[in-house]
Design a protein around this nucleic acid. Structure first.
Lengths: 212, 212
DNA sequence: CAGAAACTAGGACATCTGTCCTAGTTCATG
DNA sequence: CATGAACTAGGACAGATGTCCTAGTTTCTG
């Protein structure tokens, strides 16, 4: 999981200070969520984590949901940057590109932050519309990035077929989080699993192309 | 997700009544967890859901954690029955057996209960050792069931290779939960995804066997 | 059928939670 | 440099939560 960054501001120094403060609060919220789960994500825990008062947190985020949505927005932005980077990087060899993309997602999923953050959000998505929207947006972006690479590998595949293949890849990679993620029981076999996913996916694509 | 069943008791009528009551409480806990998430799983919500008093719930389960562990135990038992059934069912054609097994897991993951319950537990596993143990046990069982079928399809594959293939299958299938689970945005493509997983998995196995 | 063990309800309690409010402080800006 | 908008702290509040306790009731068992 990428580090949260400050957003560009252009309304003077005041706005800049505010952005710093908001960023610190959002970072603290993310840290608490990862450390203690959504259960432990309280306004007080956030306040303590960035050494300000509770009143100060509620000044910037009157509702807890406001803070949560801001957190989602910023995490989404960071992943979007990454997915756009992936999409922009059209290599000579699209197969290598796919391989590198899969390896990137695997290395991300091996971090403590991602291993904890995403299952938390998947669960939250079942009860919190804001979380559901976040999950939807981030995986639409991921699948789009995957789909473009698949399309370059096998240009004659239908858009629809590419979509289902991108879903397969996304589900396969994300599904490894619970098993080979940070400190998970099969974490030591993460690289093997990664290799298997890379090799299998290329085969699955070739098979789909051969059928079409 | 299977329905929770009463456990056999043989200590007389008292024990039987107790089992009925405990079962009702555990069922209520499961229902609340699925309806409102772990966040909403309170002793009071459980009590209301089976129309008894809070004191009555805490009589049977002094700590909330006790109730949670009992819930895990019983859900695990139900899945274990299913996995054992799968293992016992050695068909003529092991490929068909694998296909049916994958289709079983997919149909389970399409239920509302499983779609909500498992992400909740994956998240909880990061912060609650009891949940982590539950997740570990249930997926060890799942992988064992998968591994046995794979071993029958390609008997000359090494036990280690089979393990990583079973992990791949488990991660791939479970990973679909967030995307094609009950009411998820791609739920209408669940069958297509299922077909793709079945076909791909057989190819992946053949490829692994050819390499060895 | 008597007695004890198990059951059940309802409330009490301290703690925690989101939210709100008031009162001071800071500092960019006109 | 004055000034007001933005910032900050701390506390207050009602409601919720896990846990505990006491006092009755039921019903199996000897």
């Amino acid at each position: 999981m990428r580090e949260l960054k400050a957003r560009p501001v252009s309304n003077g120094k005041r706005a800049e200070i505010k952005e710093q403060r908001v960023l610190a609060i959002v970072k603290a919220a993310r840290d608490v969520l990862i450390r203690d789960g959504y259960r432990g994500l309280t306004m007080r825990a956030v306040a303590e984590n960035c050494e300000i008062s509770v009143g100060h947190v509620t000044y910037h985020f009157p509702r807890k949901l406001d803070l949560l949505e801001e957190l989602f927005e910023r995490v989404f932005d960071e992943y979007l940057v990454e997915f756009d980077r992936i999409r922009a990087k059209a290599r000579d060899d699209s197969r290598v590109e796919l391989e590198e993309t899969i390896r990137f997602v695997f290395s991300d999923l091996g971090t403590r932050e991602t291993t904890v953050f995403f299952p938390e959000i998947w669960a939250l998505a079942n009860h919190e519309p804001a979380a559901a929207r976040f999950v939807e947006r981030i995986y639409v972006s991921e699948r789009r990035a995957f789909a473009e690479i698949i399309g370059r590998i096998h240009p004659h595949l239908s858009a629809d077929k590419i979509k289902i293949l991108a879903l397969y890849l996304s589900a396969t990679v994300e599904g490894h989080t619970m098993f080979v993620g940070h400190r998970k029981s099969l974490a030591r076999r993460r690289n093997e699993a990664e290799d298997l996913v890379v090799a299998s996916m290329l085969d699955v694509l070739d098979r789909a192309a051969a059928e079409a």
